[in-house]
Structures are given as structure tokens and as C-alpha cells.
Design a binder for these strands. Structure first.
Lengths: 95, 95
DNA sequence: ATAAATAAGTTTATATTATAAACTACATTA
DNA sequence: TAATGTAGTTTATAATATAAACTTATTTAT
């Protein structure tokens, strides 16, 4: 029997974890804000946001501001739960 | 400027993290013991142990017992430091 | 008016990584 | 001596992360 619970592979990724961590601390965040905070490239960020969204961990709203596209992200209840479960599982690995 | 320090990719891996976590809590551990505790396949374990060893995070000793190969692993000082740095960096992601 | 630069992303191609399947070597048992 | 088990290693493949190239639209300069 293993001492180690599996770690949600969707969260066990540096960038996605950073995104989720950010989103936990705010009501919502814009693409460009997340990009600055995580120092990710736009392409990478776009892909990872899609994955989190597909999993139902975040909600993405696309609109326009000043005639420019505006992508706004928000963590979901499911995302919060998944994050908490991940942190809890991770603790066994960190002693 | 980023709020998130990079996570050592060698440690940010479920299996390698489990291996390091195990090795932190014992003087040394045998291949088969680590295999049972982590529930990894022998192939995967072999590869990941090699990576940790190449990085200088663990030391691997190969011998024989009862005429059978015996692989024994031990965490190094460098490995302990790396693990501690990883945990410290990770904390910023977990709030 | 049109060419160049900027902004906000997305899509796609590539490099890296994780993982298991297949294999090796040797010992034991039927 | 043929099959089974033990303890791994090597290699092939699947999955993942990442950046480069691209798209669409806007603003600014010529």
C-alpha cells in the first residue's frame, strides 16, 4: 500500500498551480494580469487557461474593452475544492 | 515581476518527489522498498532514480544479496538542500 | 491612404518528460 | 530442462509543457 496519494496532474504543473493560486486570492483576474504575475508567455498561458477551464476549475469570460479583447478568469467551486485536495495530498510528500 | 519562484523541475514530479520524501525519512532504502511504497513500476522507478542520482540528489549503491542484485539509495546533502528549497518555493503557490 | 507598430490573444509545432512495455541476467523450482 | 520468479535496465510511446508563428483588430506614423 502506498503512502502517497496521487497528485491531480492538472494542478501539479508550475504554471497552472500559479494561475490557481492567483485566482484564489482575487474575485477575478484578467489575462494580462495573470500573464504579468506568472511571467508566462501568452501562448502558454492561453493553453493552460483552456485546460483549467475544460476541467471546470475556472470560468473564462471573453468580452471587449477599449475595442480590445478582454479575457477574464474566475476560479470555480470545483476549482477551489480541487486545489484544496491537491494541497492536502501534497502534504504527505513534504513531511 | 513574478510572485512565483520557479520550481525545481527535477523535484516537481510526483514520483521523484515521493522518492525524495521517502529517502528523507530513512538512512537508506532499497529499490524494492521504494517500489512498494511509491507503487511505481520498476522501469519508471529505475529511470527516476537515475535522474535523481545524475543530479547528485541521491546516491545509489549496487551490490548483491542472496545472489540477487540489490540497489540501495540514500539522499545526499545536496538533495536535502534542493528538497528544502523546493518546499520553500512551493509555499508561495499554496498561500 | 497605407504601412508599420501595438495589443490581446490563439493555434500549431517542437522539445521535454513521464511512463510502461519489452528485455536482460541470473536463480530457483517443478 | 523448461518454466517461474526476482531485480532490475533499456527503449519505445504517450502525454505535457512551452514557445514560435500566426490571427484579428487598433492605433500611430509617413
Amino acid at each position: 500500500m502506498s503512502d502517497f496519494k496521487p497528485l491531480d496532474p492538472l494542478l501539479h504543473s508550475q504554471l497552472r498551480l500559479a494561475i490557481m493560486s492567483l485566482l484564489l486570492s482575487v474575485k477575478s483576474a484578467e489575462f494580462t494580469f495573470i500573464k504579468e504575475k506568472t511571467e508566462a508567455t501568452a501562448g502558454n498561458l492561453s493553453v493552460q487557461l483552456d485546460k483549467l477551464s475544460s476541467a471546470g476549475y475556472i470560468e473564462i469570460e471573453k468580452s471587449f474593452r477599449d475595442k480590445k479583447p478582454l479575457t477574464t478568469c474566475k476560479i470555480t467551486k470545483k476549482g477551489v475544492s480541487a486545489f484544496e485536495a491537491y494541497v492536502s495530498a501534497l502534504k504527505d510528500y513534504l513531511n
